[in-house]
Design a protein around this nucleic acid. Structure first.
Lengths: 215, 215
DNA sequence: CCAAAATCTGAGCTTTCCTTCATATATTGC
DNA sequence: GCAATATATGAAGGAAAGCTCAGATTTTGG
C-alpha cells in the first residue's frame, strides 16, 4: 500500500534546461502561496499554474497529477527539515543528554516558527493526502539521526538510547505541533518552549537517578 | 472569519419524528464508514447516502452541504470527548497533581485508543476542513475544565494552575496525537503512555521543589 | 544557421460530484 | 378518517476541476 500510494507521484520529466528549473521552482512557490491564501480545498491545478505564470500544460509536464505536486512539495520541505535535524545531531556527539534535548527542541522549534503559516498549511496538506508513507519516511530518517546521537551521550547508557529517543521525539514533535495549532501569542509560545525543555530534562534526570540506583 | 466559517453549517431541519432520528444516525454512521474505507478525498454525498441506505435528497434535508456534515460529525465526537474529560476533571478535585495528570492522560488515551482508526480519520477530516474554529472551541472548553481541576490541586499554588495547564495539555494532547500517527505496535504504545505520565510527574516535582525553595 | 530536442501553450474534453425540486409516501393530531 | 405536516425519493441540472494534446516557441549542439 505504501509503495502503491507513491506510485505515479514521481516527476514526469526532470528539468534539464535552466528555464525549466525556474519553472519548477515557480510552481512550487505558487503552490505555497495558493495553499496559504486559499487553503488546500481551493487549491486547483489551474490556480497554481496561473499564480506561477505558466500554463496548466507545463505543470503537467513535471507533475503527473495534483497529488504528486503536493507530495513533492512536502518532500522538499521535509528533506530540508531532516537535514537540519541531522546536522544538529551530528554536532552534539559526546555531549550531555540535556544539551542534546535542548538543541533538538531548538532546531525543530525554529524550523517551524520561521514560517509558522506555511508550517500549518503543510500539516494540513499532508493530512488531506491520506498518505502515511510520506511522514513515516521522514520519521524514520530523523529517528535514525536522533537515536544515533543519544547513543553517544556522555551521561546515558547506550542501550537506553532507542527507548529514550522514542519518548522524547514523540513528546517533542507532538507538543510542537500542538503548540502551533492553538492560537497562542508569542510570549506563550516562548514560555511553552522553555517548559518543554524543562520537562524533558526533568524526566531524563529522574531516569538517570533510577539507573544509578540499580547499578 | 470564525463565525463565517461555521455559517450554513447548522442542520437545515431538526428531526422531530423517530424515523428521522434513525435516519440522521444512519447518515453519521455511514459517514464514518466511508471515511474509514475510502478516505476524506473520496467521501461524496452520494456515497454516504448510499451507505446509509437513504437518498441524497434526504441527506440534504438535514445537512445543508457536505461541509456541514463533516463539521457536525466532528462536533459530535468532540463533544463526547469533552464530556469525558470534564467528568474526569470533576472527580479529581482536591487530589494531588500527579493523580490528576495520570487521570487526564488515561482518559484521553483510552478515548483515542478505543477506535484508533476513527481517531485518525477524524484528525484528517478536520484538517481538510481548513477550519480552526472547531478545534479551538473544543480546546477552550476542555482547557476550562482542566484549569479548574489544577486550581484545586492539594499540592499546587492555585495561581500556577493556568501556566501548568497550558504546558501539560499541550504536551499531552500533542504526544498522544503523535503516538497515533506513527505506526507503533501495542507494546510501544503502552510504554509511551507510561513514560509520558512519568515525564509530566517528574516535571511537576521539579516545579514544586523550585517553588518550595523560594518560599 | 539549422535540425533536433526541450519546453510551453490553453482551449476544450471528460469526469466527478454537489445540489435542487417536483413528486410520492408516511406520520401525526384532531 | 382526513387534512396537515414531516419525511423520503432520485433523476437531472450545472458548476468545478482534472487532465490531454496538437501545435507553437525556444534552446541547444554541431
Amino acid at each position: 500500500m505504501t509503495s502503491h500510494a507513491l506510485q505515479g507521484a514521481k516527476p514526469r520529466k526532470t528539468p534539464v534546461q535552466s528555464r525549466s528549473r525556474v519553472t519548477v521552482d515557480a510552481i512550487f512557490e505558487a503552490t505555497i502561496q495558493v495553499l496559504l491564501s486559499e487553503g488546500m480545498a481551493r487549491l486547483t491545478t489551474t490556480r497554481v499554474a496561473e499564480r506561477a505564470g505558466v500554463s496548466v500544460g507545463t505543470m503537467y509536464q513535471y507533475f503527473p497529477n495534483k497529488l504528486a505536486l503536493i507530495i513533492a512539495l512536502n518532500e522538499r520541505y521535509l528533506n530540508a527539515l531532516a537535514e537540519r535535524v541531522e546536522q544538529t545531531c551530528a554536532r552534539r556527539a559526546g555531549h550531555q543528554v540535556s544539551e542534546m534535548v535542548a538543541a533538538l527542541i531548538e532546531t525543530y522549534w525554529t524550523a517551524k516558527t520561521e514560517r509558522a503559516d506555511l508550517t500549518q498549511a503543510l500539516y494540513r496538506s499532508v493530512a488531506a493526502l491520506d498518505n502515511n508513507a510520506l511522514m513515516n519516511a521522514f520519521a524514520t530518517r530523523v529517528d535514525t539521526a536522533t537515536t544515533a546521537m543519544f547513543r553517544q551521550a556522555s551521561d546515558l547508557p547506550p542501550e537506553d538510547a532507542a527507548a529514550i529517543n522514542l519518548t522524547l521525539t514523540t513528546v517533542i514533535y507532538g507538543a510542537v505541533r500542538n503548540a502551533f495549532e492553538r492560537e497562542l501569542d508569542k510570549e506563550q509560545i516562548a514560555a511553552l518552549k522553555a517548559r518543554l525543555t524543562d520537562m524533558c530534562c526533568a524526566w531524563l534526570r529522574s531516569v538517570q537517578l533510577r539507573t544509578q540506583m540499580t547499578t
